[in-house]
Simulated scan of single mutants.
Amino acid sequence: MESVRVQLSGRRVKAYGRIVAAATDSHPAFGASYDLVTDESGATKRLSLTVTLAERERQISMARDEENMWLIQDHLNQTKRSGFEGALDVDVIFSPFFNALPIRRTGLYEVAEAVVLPVVYVRMPDLSVSLEQTSYSSNEAGITLVSPVAETVVTVDEHGFILDYPGLAERI
Rank of each mutant, 00 (worst) to 15 (best):
Y109N: 10
Y109V: 03
E110D: 12
E110S: 10
V111W: 10
V111T: 15
A112R: 12
A112N: 12
E113F: 00
A114W: 03
A114K: 02
V115F: 09
V116T: 14
V116R: 07
V116M: 11
L117A: 00
P118E: 05
V119S: 13
V120M: 11
V120K: 14
V120L: 15
Y121N: 03
Y121L: 04
V122T: 09
V122S: 08
D126R: 02
D126P: 02
L127S: 11
L127Y: 11
S128V: 09
S128P: 12
V129W: 13
L131D: 00
L131E: 02
Q133W: 06
S135T: 07
S135P: 05
S135M: 03
S137F: 02
S137W: 02
S137M: 08
S138G: 04
S138H: 01
N139D: 10
N139F: 07
E140R: 14
A141S: 14
A141R: 13
A141L: 13
G142L: 14
G142S: 15
G142N: 13
G142P: 12
I143W: 00
T144F: 09
L145N: 01
L145E: 04
L145C: 05
V146S: 04
P148Q: 08
V149D: 14
V149E: 14
A150N: 15
E151I: 00
E151F: 01
E151Q: 15
E151D: 14
E151V: 08
V153H: 03
V153Y: 05
V154T: 03
V154N: 01
T155W: 08
T155I: 06
V156C: 14
D157H: 04
D157N: 11
E158D: 13
E158H: 14
H159P: 00
H159C: 07
G160S: 05
G160T: 12
G160R: 06
G160M: 05
